[in-house]
Amino acid sequence: MIEQIIFIVISLFTLMMGWVVVSNNNLFHAALALMASFLGVAGLYVMLDAGFLAMAQLLVYIGAISILIIFAIMLTRRMMRTDESPFNSQPGLAGLTAVSVFAVIGFILWQMRQFWPVEPMEGVSLAFKTPVPDSMILDSVAAMGRAFVSPDAFVLPFEIASVLLLAALIGSIWVAWPKTEDEA
C-alpha cells in the first residue's frame, strides 16, 4: 500500500517535471527539470526492484546526457535571455500524436490483461506488480551479466552494440585528430 502511494507520487513528480521541460521559457531550467524527470524515472525503477537499471539511468542520463545538453545550452548564453514562448504553431498536431501514442499503449496494456495479477494480497490489489521473490532480486545482476555473454541469450546484440561503440570511439578520434600540414 505504502509502496503504491510512493510509486504514484514519484510518477506524478516525473510527469510534472516533464511538463516543466516543455513549458518553461528558460532553457536552463528546462534542462534541470529534464534531469529531475530522469531522476523520477530512476526512482520508478527502484520501486520496481530494478536497481541496476536505476543506477544505469542515473549514470547515463543524468551523469552524461544531461551534462551534454547543459553544456550545449551554456555555450549559447543568448538563448537563455529569450522571452519567446516555447510553443510553436503545431500544438494541436503534437497533442494528437501524444493522445494516439497513449491510446496505443493503453490498448496493448488492455490486451495483456490476463497477465495482470489477480489474487489480492491482504485485501489490496497490486497494480501491475507481482511480488518478486527476494532471491531473484539478489541474483538479478549476476543473471543479467551471464545472459549478456551466454550464446543462448544476448551475446549477439551485446557484441553488436560493443562493435558499434568501438566504431563511434574510433570515428570520434579520427574526426578530432589534428590535421597534418599538407592537408590543411
Binding site: 534531469m35 536497481g51 541496476f52 543506477m55 544505469a56 542515473l58 549514470l59 543524468i62 551523469g63 552524461a64 544531461s66 551534462i67 547543459i70 539478489l138 538479478s140 545482476v141 549476476a142
Partner: peptide
C-alpha cells in the same frame, strides 16, 4: 548491502558533477 554497491557509488558520484 546492495548487490550493485560499487555501481551505486559511481552513479551517485556522477550526479555530483551536475
Amino acid at each position: 548491502d546492495l548487490n550493485i554497491g560499487l555501481f551505486y557509488v559511481l552513479a551517485i558520484s556522477s550526479v555530483s558533477v551536475v
